[in-house]
Structure formats: C-alpha cells, structure tokens
C-alpha cells in the first residue's frame, strides 16, 4: 500500500521535471533505495508498471533499483556493522546503544531522458539510432 503512494509521487516529480526541462520521453529511472527503507522492491515495480501507463512521458520508462546497504554504528564499542544481519544489538559487544548510519534512503538517482532539442537533432541526423523511434 505504501509503495503505491510513493510511486504516485515519483511519477508526479518526474512529470514536473519533464515539463521544466522539455523532456519528451524518459527511458529509465534509477532509484537508490536503502536496505531498511521499508520499500518492497517487487511491489514497487508492480505499482510502477501500472502507473507509468497513465503518464505519457513515462510510458516506456524502465525502473532500475539500486540498493544502498544499511550500516549501524555502535556507541558501546564504536564499531560499524551490517544492520540487516544483526539488527539493533551490536554483534561485537552486545550493546543496544546503536544507531543507523545509512540504509533508510529513497532517492531518485538519475534518469535517462530525451529532450525536445534532442529530438530535432535526431531528426536532422538520420544516422542516429534513435531517429527510427520518431
């Protein structure tokens, strides 16, 4: 359920960006998602495949998900350990005084996009592979 809400906002953000930067088509969207961000990748991709059809610019945009590993810092002994493997309790000293360094992010890293100017260039240059798409 949560994934759907995030996808709606992702689509809106990209729609707005497309308008601002005169983007005509987005080929792919790369997200950086933390291991403990609470996003379920499979559900997210399903929701994306449904919503992208409602936004012309996003019709063929493939979703790429990169994982940001989660690490926790231990205040007890100062060590850094893998969050998913060990959770809240430090595997080195048993302390519960720990905090997450990274791994709960959810960021749009980059997109592959075609702009209106590019389309013109492609139309002029018949040798371009994208020309066929136009």
């Amino acid at each position: 359920m949560h994934e759907m809400g995030v996808v709606i906002h992702l689509a809106k953000t990209l729609d707005k960006l497309a308008e601002e930067q005169h983007i005509t088509r987005i080929g792919s969207v790369t997200l950086s998602v933390g291991e403990v961000s609470g996003i379920v990748n499979d559900l997210f991709v399903d929701a994306w495949n449904y919503f992208r059809k409602k936004h012309p610019v996003l019709n063929d945009a493939e979703l790429k998900m990169e994982t940001i590993p989660a690490y926790t810092h231990c205040d007890g002994c100062g060590s850094k350990y893998e969050t998913v493997k060990h959770g809240k309790i430090c595997p080195n000293c048993g302390s519960k005084e720990t905090w997450l360094i990274q791994g709960n992010e959810c960021i749009i890293k980059e997109i592959e996009a075609e702009t209106a100017d590019e389309e013109l260039i492609n139309q002029e240059d018949k040798g371009e592979e994208n020309a066929g798409d136009l």
């Binding site: 992702l10 809106k12 953000t13 960006l17 749009i108 890293k109 980059e110 996009a113 590019e118």
Partner: peptide, 14 residues
C-alpha cells in the same frame, strides 16, 4: 538520450 542526475528525494513532489 542523456543522463540527468537528480539525487532528489523520491517524494519530492509531496
């Protein structure tokens, strides 16, 4: 196609 780096929160529109 060109790559546009965003590094923006996924819920930026919200």
């Amino acid at each position: 196609m060109k790559i546009i780096e965003l590094k923006e929160s996924i819920t930026a529109s919200n």
